[in-house]
Design a protein around this nucleic acid. Structure first.
Length: 261
DNA sequence: ATGGTGGAAGGTCCA
């Protein structure tokens, strides 16, 4: 089963790109973030036409929004109201009998990495702490977690560890908390588990860098985690950088895992 | 030290 995660930064603007990618790579189940549209305007029929008849999406006007679209049957599970904000940053479904799939869009956190002066950063930290307690409470259920977590946890998940230590997405409070969630939830960070730790790995390049490919100042903000128990079932994991060169691209690129379930 | 770009809106917020 091929599962993809992609922060698409407006599903309506980039619907043709998503459909092309899904067809070209033969994706079975697609998790999107930053769909940026209310449910009534979600392009549900476009996904139906390519065989993704199982759909669970939650969006809001202009901001946030997550979706799970699949050719393979799932049961809607829940959307947890993280931080009691009522925003659309999470959906989860049940795959088959035993596997829970979570799709997250973690708050970006604003510019200043200070929980006192910057409410957006405080929201991000609160969100992470809630994730930690949620997943630490249940390490028995087999799970897959994907999404834009807006944190690049390891040294080689950013283009310059030293220059980004005080930049939101790579500050110690964020990276340590994320690694703690992985550890206490008994997760495997799939792309890192199959890539040497001294090798650079990115999934996002800022729009503000015109020559993104030459300068290559990327960050690994998007992630796929699986429960330790099911990691042996993962056959491959690929980050498709090529979509960043498409016309009017998302600033994030998709990640695909192939897993036997 | 600063500002650089893009999306949804239809001013400005968010990334």
């Amino acid at each position: 089963m091929k599962i993809a995660t992609w922060n698409i930064n407006s599903v309506r603007l980039r619907i043709e790109q998503v459909l092309k990618f899904t067809n070209d790579k033969n994706i079975d189940l697609l998790c999107l973030q930053e769909t940026k549209t209310e449910d009534q305007f979600f392009p549900s029929n476009d996904f139906l036409k390519i065989g993704m008849k199982y759909q669970y999406f939650r969006g809001e006007k202009s901001y946030n929004g997550v979706a799970i679209l699949s050719k393979i049957k799932f049961q809607e599970k829940e959307h947890i109201n993280w931080c009691n904000k009522g925003d659309c940053r999470h959906v989860s479904v049940q795959l088959g009998e035993k596997i829970e799939l979570h799709n997250f869009y973690v708050p970006a956190g604003g510019d200043e990495p200070d929980i006192i002066t910057n409410p957006k950063f405080a929201h991000k930290i609160d969100f992470l702490n809630e994730m930690k307690s949620h997943f630490t409470n249940d390490t028995k259920t087999k799970k897959i977690l994907v999404g834009d977590l807006n944190i690049a946890p390891l040294e080689h998940d950013v283009w310059s560890h030293k220059q980004l230590l005080n930049v939101v997405s790579h500050t110690p409070i964020e990276t340590e908390t994320l690694l703690d969630i992985i550890d206490s939830g008994e997760w495997v960070d799939v792309m890192r588990a199959i890539t040497p730790h001294n090798e650079k790995l990115y999934s996002w390049w800022s729009y503000r860098n015109r020559n993104w490919e030459i300068s290559n100042r990327g960050r690994r903000l998007d992630h796929v985690w699986v429960s330790k128990k099911i990691f042996p079932q993962v056959k491959s994991g690929v980050i498709y950088n090529e979509t960043r060169s498409w016309e009017r691209p998302s600033d994030h690129v998709p990640i695909v895992i192939d897993i036997d379930i």
